[in-house]
Amino acid sequence: MRDLYQRLSLSSKASEQEIQHAVTGCQNSALRQDAETVLTVNVHRDTYDTLHHTLSDIGCLRARLGLTHGAHWQGDVANDFSMPPDNAISRHDELVDRVSSAVSLYNRWRRWRGPWLLIAMFATGAGIGIVIGFALRLGLAAG
């Protein structure tokens, strides 16, 4: 399984015209024949695209997991679908980080007795409102 899009320097979402143009302009006759059969016939292209998508996913996974030189990853597939390692950090580490930060937030909330704090803030806000209301009423009565 080879990545014909990559070999024809196309994107995998290329339109039919682009593919036709690239196929007719291809120098290598074997590659041209393959591309003509696979990419210009819709039924063939659908099947190919499905597998291409899966293999791109696997290539990406292998790059992130450090498996680009595995014993089962060789030949055309490894040549065409191996990706350079990206900067995505380990998903598991990220999950652990997020869980621990959520836990610390919760603990802080509990330590400060969050609910009581909330009630006290509500009470002070209501008190201030009442005071301002009285002041306004006195001012109107005097005027």
């Binding site: 499905t50 597998l51 293999l55 990853w73």
Partner: peptide, 12 residues
Amino acid sequence: MANHYILRFLAD
């Protein structure tokens, strides 16, 4: 065909 590659991925 996809499972061919998935099984190999899991084995690796």
